[in-house]
């Protein structure tokens, strides 16, 4: 119950801000109108290929959007957590709600606001790309419509939780040190995107799909690439998706718990940042 109230507060406070309005409405609208005007002016000069792009494009596109969106909302979450500590409002909050409600409420509330932003940007990108490529969502099956959003949203929360942990552990933005690098771990699969798209059924890719920080990136690419490459297999086996989704869900909850514990210890120590060793001790032992 309290969690829902914290989520609503964090969400409404964020979407009411001017920056949010600019980033979510104005900039995408300006880009959309500009591209529309340019393509209209060049009518006939650019030949649009009639060949539809390969299906893995949607998966790659979603993975890219996920990582850009999760990065932006992750940084927002990190600042939110740091501000909570610095403004000292945290004592009043924690005398009203549990640290878990506060942390989870922040991650989910800011995540939802970020999701709206991501949808606005994705729609803009789809529109812009559609002016040059014969893109169509009709090629997506029901299975795509179910699995893409699941991986996307869970991956989104997982990445935001990592940033929340970083925010809970550091004193200010200049003193992140090694801990700040934690935020790039989920991005590793993107460096191997070509490999995953070419060999979506290789053992390495299949195993990586079960390891939470890599799951969202690997699986979004893999699902997009599977029908074209491997003959016979229409889709990634259901059990693999079920298991990887389960491990991602469990991983997300554990990551949020870890962030909560780091926050509980870190909020009383506003004067210092945690070292990697301390981070582990704060997050696991809670002291």
């Amino acid at each position: 119950m309290k969690l829902a109230k914290v989520i609503r507060w964090e969400f409404t406070q964020t979407i009411r801000s001017k920056q949010f309005l600019v980033m979510t409405v104005f900039i995408p609208a300006i880009i959309g109108v500009a591209v529309f005007a340019i393509t209209l002016a060049m009518e006939g000069e650019v030949s649009t290929p009639s060949e539809p792009p390969p299906p893995f494009i949607i998966g790659l596109f979603l993975a890219l959007i996920l990582f850009i969106g999760a990065f932006i909302s992750g940084v927002m979450t990190m600042y939110g957590v740091m501000k909570e500590k610095q403004s000292r409002v945290v004592e009043m909050m924690l005398s009203s709600v549990s640290a878990w409600d506060l942390m989870a409420g922040k991650v989910i509330g800011l995540g939802l606001a970020g999701l709206i932003q991501v949808i606005a940007w994705a729609a803009t990108a789809y529109f812009v790309a559609g002016r040059f490529l014969p893109l169509s969502l009709a090629s997506l099956s029901l299975a795509h419509w179910v699995t893409y959003p699941l991986y996307f949203c869970l991956g989104y929360l997982f990445i935001a939780s990592i940033y929340a942990t970083v925010g809970a552990a550091i004193k200010d933005i200049h003193s992140g040190g090694a801990i700040g690098l934690a935020g790039i771990v989920p991005y590793v699969p993107m460096m191997f995107a070509a490999l995953i798209i070419q060999k979506p059924d290789s053992l390495l890719v299949r195993i990586a799909g079960f390891i939470p920080p890599f799951t969202p990136g690997v699986m979004l690419l893999r699902i997009g690439a599977t029908p074209t490459i491997s003959e016979g297999t229409k889709f990634v086996p259901a059990w693999e998706m079920g298991l990887s989704l389960l491990s991602l869900a469990v991983g997300t909850v554990l990551m949020m718990r870890f962030a909560t514990k780091v926050f509980e210890v870190g909020m009383l120590m506003t004067g210092k940042s945690a070292s990697l060793r301390e981070l582990w001790r704060w997050g696991v032992r809670g002291s």
């Binding site: 309290k2 109230k5 914290v6 406070q13 004592e91 005398s95």
Partner: peptide, 24 residues
């Protein structure tokens, strides 16, 4: 609880913030 170290969400409106704390 009124803690010694004072602090509130600076960008929130006064009434909204009080309603939020009351609800929590």
């Amino acid at each position: 609880y009124l803690p010694e170290e004072r602090g509130l969400y600076g960008d929130a409106r006064v009434l909204d913030l009080l309603v939020y704390f009351g609800e929590l």
